[in-house]
Design a protein around this nucleic acid. Structure first.
Lengths: 339, 339
DNA sequence: TTGAAAGCGCTAACAT
DNA sequence: ATGTTAGCGCTTTCAA
């Protein structure tokens, strides 16, 4: 633990070659004779040599790491299980590609400033931004201005921004969910949507509305849509509101499982049976869906795929490719909150 | 975005001093005249200069970052809300101290090897290890052997290891919970404990057993204790088992809120009313506790404090201080699953 | 109080 | 195929 950590110099000396040869071996091994390679391999094993990232970053100008930037009100990070899922997916994929990452959270203006300064300083090669519940356009603009390769886990509101993004097919998924509800006999559909602003909310609402219109079952009065913040508590409130103003609804399409769980709590309190008196379809297929009582019919978001594509995109952009948008399909998972 | 990033050289030139003076200014500002300091300050603002971490790390030999090392089976990271809570607390505290951190996950032997190599390479100054559900002694031993400053979010099984740790008062909290149950009229107590192995599980079990013994209400046959893995599903199973073998129990002390939620699902399925026929106390006070139906009486773990102390400890150890153990008290939060 | 100079460990021309 | 050399941006003696 006290012995000097092995450097490329030690390896070179032991292998009987120059440091440049070791460096070449380390970076692809081209232009290194088999003989030299073998000796270097032995020397590395013997010394437990691992390249110093900082020295390498200094000379190459690349950090070999990316930031996972979370712009979220603190309480939601705790409650939304999707963060953990996505975080894990990203961590796994990044690990496979030999890139380390650091997690940054932004809860207020001060942290935002500090984070921007840090990122601009070039400590990381790129940024994966996740801000499902909060407006992140300022941060995003700063990243773009600083020329930092960036991917976003939703469709950015400003589509002209040169950032990559990965999102799910919100419109189509909403239609799929609502059409299923219709097919199970529901006629008076309501929706509990996510926070207004993000494109995901907008697209799901359109999917909901268009399905109703196509089926000719839309009510003529104010559309039964209430917005929540994806938290369970907001789902509880939203369900109450829905019931108060539209007591005749027989099904609800809810934009997150957490909100669906909250909504079911309200229903239970009011003695409304699920799925007999009220059918429900959630969104995410988070752990809450299967644990709900009864288990929730929901739209499965492929977070592992989202994470994979996010990393893939970012690494491509860092390598100089054009940012693109990736849209992933969702799957309806039928459980017991629909008939 | 293309203009050369400002270096200490640029700042020195603009301020009309040497790079060494700028460096001194950056690191505490001692031995820098007010005059020079003022000029440097202006130059830094003008150039938007931010020190290059890699260059600094290279020369100082310190990385300025630490690792948050998660040794957990993947599925539990998704489900256990405590991770997110602790992660956030640590992130906040680290941010305040100007230290960045990277998150590493260890799900299998291969990742473990890779992580150990990475950490040994000195890419970080220290490690915060969290492994509540999995044996982490091998990893810990490797870290100690490599001389990497380490703190653990539980009491390490090998107490002679020179690592810092922060944990909650498991024994006392268990006694507090069980005594409360007794005070509410419960007489035939059972326990759903965490996975066998970690000291936390052992201490809570002892607290449970000792309380029963002290009150003289222990049954003479096999102690009604079943182990789970902190997941909701395991709580569901454990409750079934308890009911099958000890149908006369009237209260259960459960080592996590997630398991308590699972247990309540089993109770509901069997038509056993909470808290009338069965009282329940959980552990953690995670979001699941308040959302449970009825809301869960539980033991509150102060994760924000745990995170704060973890960071504090680690930074102290990195600075050369002796590792110590920190034990934090828990608080009983009474809600509606107790009478 | 300040500056000159010597690297930290590595990569990347450029020679050979 | 391999070695020599010149830094990357910063801190840190050591002199002045």
């Amino acid at each position: 633990m006290n012995q000097h950590k092995a450097t490329i110099h030690d390896v070179a000396r032991i292998a009987g070659v120059s440091r440049a040869t070791v460096s070449r071996y380390l970076n692809g091994g081209k232009w290194v004779s088999e003989d030299a390679a073998a000796k270097i391999k032995v020397a590395i094993e013997q010394t437990h040599y691992v390249a110093n990232t900082h020295a390498r970053a200094l000379v190459t100008g690349r950090a070999g790491s990316v930031a996972f930037l979370l712009g979220e009100p603190q309480k939601l990070l705790f409650e939304d299980p999707n963060f953990a899922t996505l975080l894990r997916a990203v961590a796994d994929e990044l690990g496979k590609r030999g890139t380390s990452f650091l997690l940054m959270t932004t809860d207020n203006k001060d942290e935002e400033r500090r984070n921007i300064a840090y990122l601009q300083a070039g400590h990381v090669d790129g940024v994966i931004q996740v801000a499902w519940h909060q407006d992140s356009s300022k941060m995003l603009a700063a990243l773009v201005k600083a020329g930092i390769p960036t991917v976003v886990a939703e469709q950015p509101s400003d589509e002209t921004l040169p950032v990559g993004y990965v999102h799910v097919e919100d419109y189509g998924s909403a239609r799929k969910a609502c059409e299923y509800l219709l097919s199970r006999g529901a006629r008076r559909l309501a929706m509990i949507a996510g926070p207004e602003g993000p494109s995901g909310t907008r697209d799901r609402v359109h999917g909901f509305l268009d399905t109703l219109a196509a089926a000719g079952v839309g009510s003529s009065d104010a559309a039964p849509i209430v917005h929540g913040d994806y938290s369970s508590a907001s789902g509880e409130r939203a369900m109450s509101e829905l019931l108060d103003f539209h007591p005749d609804i027989d099904a609800v399409f809810i934009s997150s499982d957490a909100m669906a769980v909250g909504a079911m709590k309200t229903l239970r309190a009011r003695g409304i049976a699920v799925p007999d008196d009220m059918q429900i379809v959630g969104f995410d297929d988070s752990s809450a869906a299967m644990l709900a009582d009864p288990p929730l019919t929901t739209v499965r978001q492929p977070f592992d795929q989202i994470g994979k594509h996010l990393v893939d995109q970012l690494l491509r952009i860092i390598a100089g490719e054009q940012p693109i948008g990736v849209t992933l399909p969702c799957e309806l998972v039928v459980r017991d909150t629909t008939r």
